[in-house]
Structures are given as structure tokens and as C-alpha cells.
Simulated scan of single mutants.
Amino acid sequence: MNFQTERLQIRPILESDEAEIFAIHSDAETCRYMLHEPWTDATRAEAFSKRLKQNQLSQASPVTLAVVLDNQVIGELFVWYTEMKETVEIGYVFNRAFHGHGYAFEAIKALLERLFTDFSIHRVQANLDARNKASEKLCYRLGMRKEAHFLQDYWTKGEWTDSFVFGLLQEEFVSNKKIES
């Protein structure tokens, strides 16, 4: 998967992206709601190596995509098939220095378009930490529907956390013109 938006290039991870991706994943605040601890120099190589291998979406393999602005990686998009037919889950993370400019919305909206058009996906879902209000707001802005609020269903980083599940059907995305900007 390799595509452009008005301001961004979305493409597979390259070896030359390591420093910029490390900057994203080594930031404790960025990783607060993620499932992993912040990357360290000791964990960097292994974690980055996994991303390099995730370069093409298939039933057997997730894809990790770099979000590039002016030749700088500012975020990542993740897509993997679930066990349900024609259903994928998405995830995303962006460098905090680039929050508040609409880059995540622009990148994910374009990703949704590709998934529904090029991959004939029926349903996209996102599972997020319920404390992540910015991510919740983004899902709503993308036209996604909150389908579940699970109470203390996930043990992560030494505590039980709530989670939200958001969903969007292909037919909703195609007919939902309110997510223009």
C-alpha cells in the first residue's frame, strides 16, 4: 500500500525511518495508551525489525505504514485482518509534535478509502483505551460509531483499563459525506 493525500505520503516502513519511528515510540506520553512500554535503546532494534517485515496486508500478515510529511515520518498506521470475514482492525500513532493539524484525520480517512475500495473490506474497527479522549474524538470525526464500552477488560502496564470499540461499515463510509474535513 502506497498512496498520497493532499499533504501526506502513506507508504510501507523503510530502514531509513528508524530514528523517526523511535522518536515516536520512545516518548512516554505517546505510549501512555498503547499496549507497549516506550521503546528503549535495548528494545529499539527488535521492535523496529518487526515493523519492517509488516509491509503488505494479507490475511496472514498485518501492515504497518509510515505517514510522511515533507520527507519526515510523523506517524504510523496499522491494519490487520480479524477472524471475521472482510473485517480489519486499524491502529495509529503520531508524533506529539504534529498533533492538532489534522494529519491523523487526513491519513486515516485516506486509509479507510483504500481499505473499502481496493481491498473490498466490509467493516473496519478500532479498539482503544477509553482514557484516550483524542483518539475517541478522532473516531467520531471519521464517522465511526462507538459500538462497545468494556469496563476494566484489559490488563496493561499494571492496571485494569476500560476500552472502546468503534466500527464503520463500507456502506456507511461511502454514503457518509460529513467526514469531508
Rank of each mutant, 00 (worst) to 15 (best):
G100Y: 06
K53T: 04
S175R: 05
K85W: 01
S58A: 03
M34D: 04
V67A: 14
L77Q: 08
N2K: 09
W80V: 05
Y92K: 04
E20K: 08
Y33P: 12
A28T: 06
M84C: 05
A107F: 04
Q54F: 10
T156A: 15
I10R: 00
E37I: 11
T156W: 08
Y33W: 13
L138H: 02
V79R: 04
R44L: 05
K178M: 12
R32I: 02
C31S: 07
V63F: 13
Y154A: 11
A28V: 07
R96E: 06
S49P: 07
R44E: 03
F119D: 07
D70A: 02
A134Y: 13
R141W: 06
E180C: 02
I21V: 12
H36D: 15
E18K: 06
S16A: 09
D27P: 03
Q4T: 09
N71H: 06
A110Q: 11
I13P: 05
G75E: 04
D162V: 01
V165C: 13
F48N: 02
A126I: 01
F119R: 04
K178R: 10
A23R: 12
K85P: 15
D118A: 00
E37L: 13
Q125I: 11
E136C: 13
K177Y: 08
V73Y: 03
H36Q: 12
Y140C: 06
C139Y: 00
G102E: 08
L128M: 15
E20R: 04
T43D: 14
T64V: 13
S16V: 10
R145P: 00
N71G: 00
L151R: 11
R44W: 00
A148Q: 14
R51Q: 13
W160Y: 10
T156C: 15
W80G: 14
I21C: 09
H149L: 09
S175Q: 08
Y140L: 14
D118M: 05
L14C: 02
K85V: 13
N132T: 03
H149G: 06
W80C: 10
S26L: 08
L69V: 00
P12M: 03
L77S: 07
V63R: 12
F105C: 10
Y81G: 10
G100W: 00
M84H: 08
D162H: 11
W160D: 15
E159S: 13
D17K: 01
L138K: 06
T161I: 15
A28K: 14
L115G: 09
L112I: 02
